[in-house]
């Protein structure tokens, strides 16, 4: 029994994490937090740094949730990392954050969320930033 949450240090990511924590508490399941980076640039603001990870760690520990935080940097995009983790751990639920994108932006960049929604084998819970 595992919940996988794709985390990024943005309001959407925070919303997803909060929702995932609620789900994990409700069902008393293990929580797997994935924060990945392709690692192909010197700077990636979607890759959480030590202090942020530490604060998540603390937050989960206080709530007494059985958890693992993973930060894979393997050249894969975020969707692939989340899907991989979900498959490996037989996840029952994937939680992701959605952000607003213009149609043009979607066309150019593609959408991580869309890929996860289409390709995941388990239910996906998509939340928006409050």
């Amino acid at each position: 029994m595992t919940i996988v949450v794709g985390y990024v240090p943005t309001p959407e990511g925070e919303a997803a994490l909060t929702q995932a924590i609620a789900e994990a508490r409700k069902n008393n399941t293990k929580l797997l937090v994935i924060n990945s980076s392709k690692g192909d640039a010197l700077v990636d603001n979607r890759y959480a740094q030590e202090p942020e990870i530490q604060s998540i760690e603390d937050r989960l520990a206080i709530q007494g949730i059985d958890h693992v935080i993973k930060q894979p940097v393997r050249g894969h995009d975020a969707a692939a990392e989340v899907l991989d983790a979900a498959e490996e751990n037989n996840a029952d639920l994937i939680v992701i954050g959605l952000r607003r994108r213009t149609p043009v932006g979607k066309l150019i960049m593609g959408s991580v969320s869309q890929r996860i929604l289409l390709e995941a084998d388990c239910p996906v819970l998509a939340v928006k930033a409050g």
């Binding site: 640039a41 010197l42 700077v43 990636d44 890759y47």
Partner: peptide, 8 residues
């Protein structure tokens, strides 16, 4: 190449 991305 540095493997861990940094934050600005």
């Amino acid at each position: 190449l540095r493997r861990t991305p940094l934050h600005v």
